[in-house]
Amino acid sequence: MKGFFEAGLGIILAVALYTLLGKISASLLFLFNPFSCVVLYFSLMKHDIFGAAMGTVCGLLQDSLSLGLFGVAGLTKTLLGFSTGFISRKINVAPVTRNFVFLLIVSTIELALWKLLALFLFRERFALGGGLVLFQPLTTAFIVALLFQIVRKKRGESS
């Protein structure tokens, strides 16, 4: 029950952060994807199925805030959530550097897959936001890795 509450809170925080970033500067939305951060965080913490479910909800939510086809971000984020959770169960990705590199790889693949699907379905050029979108996996990986390490440390101290 606590897990579902945390997930709901995470989703609402992602929407709030997404709105806030847009209000500060619309270009920040190219640089940072709060929905991917939520999916990656819960995939690392609660693994594959929970990650896939979070990917579905966050992806569909992201799709509902867009004019594009409903389900494209849902599909890629479901893949992201499941694969991150599955791999993190098989390989130890807890150490700081390994954690960051792993998150960087999966978020890069997710972004590439999302853009490729959009290209395939809409036949349109990538919106690069002046190159800012290329930094999106880096910022996403950095923020999730930082959050993951902080939570791990806190849990380690309390236990």
């Binding site: 209000k23 992201q62 004019l67 971000a73 959009a118």
Partner: peptide, 15 residues
Amino acid sequence: SVIGYDSSDIHKSIV
């Protein structure tokens, strides 16, 4: 007031 931008590309739509 503009409360949101398009999540796939900000140049598509606003809320």
